[in-house]
């Protein structure tokens, strides 16, 4: 009887916590398709707010995707070879480098953005272009890519795979292409998902780095929260959820799969 009571109490508590997380999200999604928020859902269901969001903010949404995928490209080109190099060297210097590149995880985005502004803010055309935001995003997401790939390398003996390919006559570049990159694929995928998900919602850096002509989705969101009617702000949030939730779900499924080791059995 007592065990039953404890179970019910714990369940109720957990349900309340879940409600705290889910109810506002549902509220905002509903509000985005409600004709008049103050009169509630009885006022009718409409897509007019979503359409207005599209008219007002399509360019920021599109720009967000362009920047996110451009950033992903850079983190792939920079991060994957770097993860390989850092893992194979494995000496004190590479551990120090690893420390440095993970610092942006620990330092608030605001500080990094300020540092970038104070250093490169004077370069007018660079400052005004979306490349300025890209730079901030690369600094912020590079550690995720590098660590995600290095985690794969650390899980098994990638050094021996590399040496084996070398013994068979493959040049370093060829080994990297034929053996290392395919081997690191799960880490590259997980890292990519992470990078895109984080970037589509990145605000701290972007708010400081953007200009009126280089707004991104979250900047637009803040903008709509501050100056648009609640229905439009909600509709914009709904659009954001529609884009981000599949990515979040994919990330969790992927994380679940990775608990089953994919590497060779020993």
């Amino acid at each position: 009887m007592r065990a039953r009571a404890i179970f019910v109490a714990q369940l109720t508590f957990t349900l309340l916590v879940a409600a705290f997380l889910i109810v506002p999200a549902l509220q905002s999604m509903l509000a985005g398709v409600t004709a008049n928020y103050f009169r509630g859902i009885r006022s009718g269901v409409t897509l007019q707010w979503v359409l207005q969001v599209w008219q007002l903010y399509a360019d920021t949404i599109l720009r967000s995707f362009v920047i996110a995928f451009a950033t992903l490209g850079v983190t792939l080109v920079v991060g994957v070879p770097a993860a390989y190099g850092l893992h194979l060297r494995g000496d004190r210097l590479s551990r120090a480098v690893e420390e440095i590149i993970t610092l942006p995880l620990a330092i608030p985005g605001l500080a990094i953005a300020l540092a970038l502004l104070l250093t490169y803010g004077g370069l007018g055309s660079f400052r005004r272009s979306w490349l300025f935001i890209l730079v901030g995003h690369v600094v912020f997401t590079l550690p995720f890519m590098v660590r995600s790939v290095m985690a794969i390398f650390a899980a098994t003996d990638v050094k021996t795979l590399d040496e084996t390919a070398a013994s068979l006559g493959a040049s370093p570049l060829r080994r990297f292409r034929d053996v290392i990159v395919p081997y690191a694929r799960p880490g590259i995928l997980a890292g990519s998902l992470m990078v895109v998900t984080l970037l589509l919602g990145e605000f701290n850096l972007t708010w400081m780095l953007h200009t009126p002509l280089t707004k991104t989705l979250p900047v637009g969101l803040a903008d709509s929260y501050a100056s648009m009617r609640l229905e439009i702000a909600s509709a914009y949030t709904l659009v954001f959820f529609v884009m981000i939730i599949p990515l979040l779900v994919a990330m969790q499924i992927f994380a679940g799969c990775r608990n089953e080791p994919a590497g060779p059995r020993r």
Partner: peptide, 17 residues
């Protein structure tokens, strides 16, 4: 699910709540 919701969005959800 809300694992990677950005701070701005959470701020809005708190306003709704």
């Amino acid at each position: 699910l809300p694992l990677a919701f950005p701070g701005v969005v959470i701020g809005f959800l708190i306003i709704l709540l």
